[in-house]
């Protein structure tokens, strides 16, 4: 091979430029291994191009190496995030969806909790109303049975009139002689003071013989103020006295509130 002609062809300049194909590069490389003068030529071309390309750098680089070095540290192991500026839309969308879902779940669970509380509240109110209805029904049925009693034509009504101790007091006794029951209506009596109870007496008049038929010990708890007491006596009159708690064996006449005789 005529190495001088080869050098003169200008292929070595293009070799150093990098404008040859891979195959041509390998051919030149093999010739350079065999012909030191060709290699020497390459070195001189390279020197000239080194001068030319470095000369066109517009200014002296000052801080570039530091920036590169920082990225070297970050990429030890040879991985460099060259596309680091690329926006990762799927990830952003994913996170946004997750956040939106969390907000939605939180909102729904809050709403759910509020609704559940409301249901509990409604349930309580419903039970209160139901018990009120039961109470009202009980009272209505009591009143109804009372009415039935009062309409019973065999019933004897005995009005009891006020005595000296309280001129405004009054009461009534409804006596079912056959059933031996008395209904004592004491709506016209004042509430008894603490420690005292009203006691109801059946009286025989000649001679005057009082027999206790019971005490009204749940006076303030009985809204209708009508008490049912058994009365097996052959009564001629009824009286109500105020007695110490538990009642007395014989009436305290000073505390006689109402008294009435059966019309014969």
């Amino acid at each position: 091979m005529d190495i001088k002609a080869y050098i003169a062809s200008g292929i070595l300049e293009l070799y150093v430029y990098g404008s040859l194909t891979e195959k041509e590069n390998l051919e030149v490389y093999e010739i350079l291994q065999k012909h030191p003068e060709a290699l020497e030529e390459v070195k001189r071309i390279e020197h000239a191009l080194d001068q030319l390309s470095a000369a066109v750098a517009p200014n002296t680089l000052s801080s570039s190496y530091k920036k590169i070095e920082q990225n070297l540290d970050a990429s030890t192991g040879g991985i460099i995030a060259i596309d680091r500026k690329k926006t990762n839309w799927p990830a952003y969308i994913g996170w946004a969806a997750a956040v939106a879902l969390l907000i939605g779940v939180f909102f729904q669970s809050n709403k759910n909790r509020a609704l559940r509380q409301q249901v509990v509240q409604q349930e309580i109110e419903k039970q209160v109303l139901e018990s009120k209805i039961i109470i009202a029904e009980e009272e209505a049925s009591k009143t109804k049975s009372l009415l039935d009693v009062l309409r019973n034509k065999t019933l004897i009504r005995v009005p009891l009139k006020a005595q000296n101790i309280d001129p405004t007091a009054y009461a009534s006794v409804y006596w079912d002689k056959e059933q031996q029951n008395t209904y004592i209506d004491v709506a016209g009596l004042p509430d008894p003071p603490p420690g005292k109870v009203y006691q109801v007496w059946s009286l025989k008049l000649n001679p005057l013989t009082p027999t206790s038929i019971g005490i009204l010990d749940k006076f303030s708890k009985n809204d209708q103020k009508i008490f049912l007491l058994a009365n097996p006596n052959d009564s001629e009159a009824f009286g109500i006295t105020l007695e110490p708690e538990g009642g007395s064996k014989s009436p305290t006449l000073e505390q006689l509130y109402v008294l009435g005789a059966i019309a014969s």
């Binding site: 150093v16 430029y17 990098g18 040859l20 891979e22 590069n25 390998l26 490389y29 390459v42 390279e46």
Partner: peptide
């Protein structure tokens, strides 16, 4: 080295 000069590779 078979592919070319180091200088060329960098350029």
């Amino acid at each position: 080295e078979k592919k070319g000069r180091f200088f060329t590779w960098i350029l």
